[in-house]
Design a protein around this nucleic acid. Structure first.
Lengths: 338, 338
DNA sequence: CGTTGGCACTCTGATCGTTCGAGTGCCAGA
DNA sequence: TCTGGCACTCGAACGATCAGAGTGCCAACG
């Protein structure tokens, strides 16, 4: 176990490096932090920290920089979550309150988060699988062509075209619409399948094919939409990454275009708490020199989706975590209101 | 007017510079192109071209590079549009044919375009103002609460919640729905307003308020959605931009996040033809060192939206233009089919 | 008049050595 | 266990030199 002072030294190194972006040496440390010991002592501590793998030197006789392991310790033990200032909080609330629909909420959130953290922001659309059905509508477009419209309680709308195996009368349509709605409105998506399973049986033989098709499409929509959408923003902040540009930035841009990768990344967030993945802790190779801070959000204690930021491992963890958490909370509130 | 050979020299310079990314000198030119004259002659021609502003030297005694004006001349007079190879065409078609809905079409298009041109691709969603109404649906969610669902012929769905000034019976609702649809289905959005103006008059006094509200919401939806959505992709290709990274790339990334800027950019495309904006021809300052190639697409001779790519001024214009045009055509076909 | 070969000139970029300074490791002493 | 001192290392910055590519100009030629 590292002594109190060594941890203090590590904290100082992380803070300085995050601020200056340059390797930090023993002398500079003692000058900028009131450690109460001499540079020589700090040097010894640094030697230990290096041996333990918390810090490293880019080349002999330069200062030290934190390793992923060092950041990990910093985040876990040394750093709190820095709460936002109250003007910041007010600004967040004002900005988000202006949103007019779900797209707008997500759009504003992503811009807000990017601006606040000065990093790349990723916001997942509220999940359908956790949502409930507000309404299912069936429209007849042609004798054997229907449109299915699904409306969720989060305000999202999905529509599908359906080619019926046989013509389907207006009466049957109204009937199906009514029965369907009476069974599924207010239900969670995951609960729907068993509730509609026996519906075809109660229809005339000639309509059963169509009813089955409609149900199949409905269920398919629920499942398909479980692969959820994302919005990202603040990519311009990538330019503040480091000196060795193209090499670092390219894989990150590539990763950001892979929805699957991002979803997995966010998915790693713990249900309730905040998740911080540092450097090589990220499964995706292109993000080995970045850290991801993510958290779930939702209304009323229920997580409906996640959001987070992607930035260089050399980031201001307390500040970023504070911003991410605050934004998640306010978005949850907004969703609860609407 | 420039002589034939001088134009030929300009063409050679553009081609070489696009290929090598390095200033091109007189000697190298005569070696790589069969111009039939000596380097000295080429030097004279270059001097003239420089005086006319078509090319420039980064510093004294280095090769020449084309100016924006030079690229402009190249595009207008010297370069054709390079058609894609037939394997490429087949690949495009196969890839786009797999799309399942509108989002997917746009998503695939943007990825395709980015990959084909190795640049940043921008695709605008098919415009609502040019679209026609396929169906308008009204749902009663609560006694005084309606939902309006608008379905377009391009498969897009928009929905709005409406709070009615007074309760609205099922009979009136069905009536309104029927009349509304009989008037607007198949109509272009821009033609809708006069067609529904007198609808409230034909209803009972107590329902007129609600009918007006519904109509107002409908018209509002048409207008609001005229501010259209975009999808972008291939941002990782920005890393191939140039050597002086952060400075060039940052404003581009910023521009790409400004939907308004991008829409304006695409909007500059001529109705029918392809538009190429080179360097400073772009109104937006951040894009002064990029070129934008855009074109409208649509089904049946009608332009419903635009798409294009953003890349360095030093780009392969014939190839890029060929790819953009081909993709636009195939997307138009796909839209016509669905 | 357009084209050509020759020639002197001018820069940039690469290479190399030197220097400077920050930072380290180690050791002896408090 | 901490501290001050000291020798050492190594990278970044600076400057001088050099080679090469490319230019502009000129005189000669068809």
């Amino acid at each position: 176990m590292l002594s109190e002072r060594r941890l203090e030294v590590l904290r100082a190194i992380v803070q300085d490096y995050v601020g200056t972006e340059e390797p930090v040496g023993s002398k500079a440390l003692t000058e900028r932090h009131r450690l109460g010991v001499s540079p020589a002592t700090v040097r010894n501590d640094m030697a230990v920290l290096e041996e333990e793998g918390y810090i490293a030197q880019p080349h002999t006789s330069a200062g030290r920089i934190p390793t992923d392991k060092g950041y990990r310790l910093f985040v876990d033990k040394l750093a709190g979550v820095k709460p936002l200032s109250s003007p910041e909080r007010r600004a967040i609330q004002n900005f988000l309150d202006g949103a007019v629909d779900l797209d707008d909420v997500v759009g504003r959130t992503v811009r807000l988060l990017a601006q606040l953290t000065r990093q790349v922001a990723v916001v997942q659309y509220p999940s359908l699988t956790r949502s409930t059905v507000r309404h299912v509508e069936l429209l007849s477009l042609a004798p054997a062509r229907l449109m299915l419209v699904l409306i969720t309680d989060t305000g999202r709308v999905e529509q599908r075209l359906i080619d019926c195996p046989s013509p389907f009368g207006e009466t049957s349509l109204a009937d199906l619409r009514a029965r369907l709605n009476s069974r599924v409105v207010g239900r969670r998506f995951t609960d729907v399948p068993p509730l509609v399973q026996d519906l075809p049986e109660s229809f005339e033989a000639e309509d059963r094919g169509t009813v089955s098709t409609v149900l199949a499409t409905l269920l398919e929509t629920l499942v398909e939409e479980a692969e959820e959408r994302l919005m990202i923003g603040g990519t311009a902040n990538l330019t503040r990454f480091g000196h060795d540009f193209p090499l670092t930035i390219r894989p990150v841009l590539e990763a950001l275009e892979e929805q699957v990768v991002l979803l997995k990344l966010l998915g790693e967030a713990n249900e309730s708490g905040m998740a911080v993945r540092i450097g090589h802790e990220n499964a995706y190779e292109g993000l080995n020199s970045t850290s991801v801070v993510s958290v779930g959000y939702g209304s009323g204690g229920e997580t409906v989706a996640k959001l987070g930021v992607v930035g260089p491992t050399r980031m201001d963890y307390p500040g970023t975590m504070g911003a991410v958490r605050a934004v998640a909370r306010y978005v949850g509130q907004i969703l609860a209101e609407s």
